[in-house]
Write a protein that binds this DNA or RNA. Structure first.
Lengths: 152, 152
DNA sequence: GCTTGACTTCAACCTTACTTGAAGAATTAC
DNA sequence: GTAATTCTTCAAGTAAGGTTGAAGTCAAGC
């Protein structure tokens, strides 16, 4: 390789070390279009430093339950070649924050229902708030799938 | 079958209808030990009515990210044969509530970090709060895996 | 009493998110 | 200069959480 000292680009091993990911996972992510490394003349991958931030984003989003294809959609908003600007990351972050707010709110609702249910001690499926939040959905054969607000 | 009118037990089709699950999923859950139907002399499954509540619990827990084997551990606290009592469900619910509180709090922390990050606009991996919450972990090759509080 | 629909088992397949292993080329370390 | 790493590709395997299909049995309606 032999580039000048403060290298802009990282080998897959270096990216692995800094992100905590296995190299196999990083190759897999490339396959899925989440990262787009350059190549050395010999075919070795070279990642821009901003890749670490991309991968951090991937890891956080995963922990929030996003699938890789959904994460890719978010990352596709970033420039393909150049390093993302402050504004680029900002847009992603704002989306992210809105989603977090949503999740926090939905968990809060569930938590409240649960509190009510602990107190009420009901065992009737027809009455219980928590387990049968939307009786109309149940009447249509829908059931408790919609408890967390996924009503179609 | 031919039982008296207000039947205590349900066929797999009836359970499917009331929960919104596919019969194949219910059989799969039986295989995993999440439900334990009786059998008719002919070998057809007969589910106690409380099974619907068990399955509702499974569905909610799944949406919160629990795996089936973890959910089974929770459900194993319920009586195997008899219908669960109010107290049985109450114990489960209390665990559940504690976990929800935990999740809500962790999401809140992440949300705060994100807010700070939107404002700061930093792109330096060495400095950024959100993407590099634990620099010591990163120094040990750990990386952002620990962002949500999973620090070992 | 016979047809239709619901039930049975079992094996194979699917998707997501990766890991593992083989075989070989490139780089680094001494 | 050679030995040990690290890198490459590609195929196959794994685990979770199911679905699908075949082949056959049981139950309910008319």
């Amino acid at each position: 390789m032999n580039l000048s000292h403060p290298r802009e680009d990282l080998t897959i091993g270096e990216v692995a070390e800094r992100t905590g990911l296995a190299t196999s996972a990083i190759r897999f992510y490339e396959d899925k279009g989440l990262v787009r490394p350059q190549r050395t003349p010999a075919g070795h991958r070279l990642f821009h430093r901003s890749t670490i931030r991309r991968l951090s984003f991937v890891l956080i989003a995963q922990q929030l339950g996003y699938r890789l294809d959904e994460i890719k959609l978010q990352l596709d908003a970033l420039p393909a070649e150049a390093a993302p600007t402050v504004g680029d990351w900002e847009r992603l972050s704002v989306n992210f924050a809105a989603d977090l707010d949503d999740r926090i709110q939905r968990l809060g609702v569930l938590r409240e229902r649960l509190t009510g249910c602990i107190g009420c001690g009901c065992l009737s499926l027809e009455v219980c708030h928590l387990y049968n939040a939307d009786d109309r959905a149940a009447a249509h054969g829908a059931g408790p799938r919609y408890l967390l607000g996924d009503t179609p």
